[in-house]
């Protein structure tokens, strides 16, 4: 049990997909303009990672290694399409805000990386915890980045005004702000892990 918990934790800290592995940065840059968007994207990606991890590890002995990549892609694409349809049906506003980046989870490297590097070599249970950990790490990173960007760039948190008469710095809502925030956060994470 303790070992499984470790698999979960590593996705949040030591192997955080955004801050340590620097994977999936493209959606991170694009959708992290508000906490709602960031969280929605994180949950959607978590669902896809979890689903593809489970299936890939379940059929890992059945798939010959020569054709594993096409199989992984089909599995991942299936989960992404499910997410897209469900989101359109039940969360239309979120789906409109995230736009093209929901279908683009297909090419999010975290999903592929976990399927290839972890799920195809480990048991289903372990893969579940790995997927949950990676998803949680990705969601946390997204919420952190989008929180900072929303607060400084729009003056709000979860759509609520923080301080009256604050003049938001538009840079943070625009693309350069995303790069700046991610860079500074990665710097801080590295600084903290060095000191420890």
């Amino acid at each position: 049990m303790k070992k499984l918990f470790k698999e979960f934790l590593k996705g949040i800290f030591r192997e955080n997909p955004t801050f340590a592995l620097a994977l999936g940065l493209c959606p991170t840059l694009a959708v992290s303009t508000s906490i709602v968007n960031g969280f929605g994207m994180g949950v959607a990606a978590t669902f896809v990672i979890l689903g593809s991890n489970i299936i890939v590890s379940a059929i890992r002995n059945f798939i010959p290694s020569k054709i594993r990549i096409p199989c992984f892609i089909v599995i991942i694409a299936t989960f992404v399409t499910i997410v897209e349809l469900v989101m359109k049906a039940y969360f239309p506003l979120l789906s409109k805000a995230l736009g093209i980046f929901v279908p683009l989870i297909v090419v999010n490297c975290i999903v592929m990386a976990r399927a290839e590097a972890f799920a195809s070599k480990h048991t289903v249970v372990k893969s579940i915890f790995d997927g949950l950990g990676m998803g949680a790490g990705f969601t946390l990173a997204l919420v952190l980045i989008s929180g900072i960007r929303e607060a400084f760039g729009n003056g709000t948190l979860l759509g609520l005004v923080i301080v009256r008469n604050f003049e938001p710095a538009l840079l943070f809502i625009l693309a350069p702000g995303a790069l700046l925030v991610i860079g500074i956060l990665i710097g801080i994470v590295n600084l903290l892990s060095q000191r420890r």
Binding site: I59, P70, V74, L85, V86
Partner: peptide, 24 residues
């Protein structure tokens, strides 16, 4: 094997599509 994987994936997608269609 590829056919099997694709077949299962396609069937799942078809059913999800029909479940969510009225709602969308």
């Amino acid at each position: 094997i590829l056919f099997l994987v694709n077949f299962v994936a396609a069937s799942i997608l078809v059913s999800v599509y029909y479940i969510t269609k009225p709602r969308i």
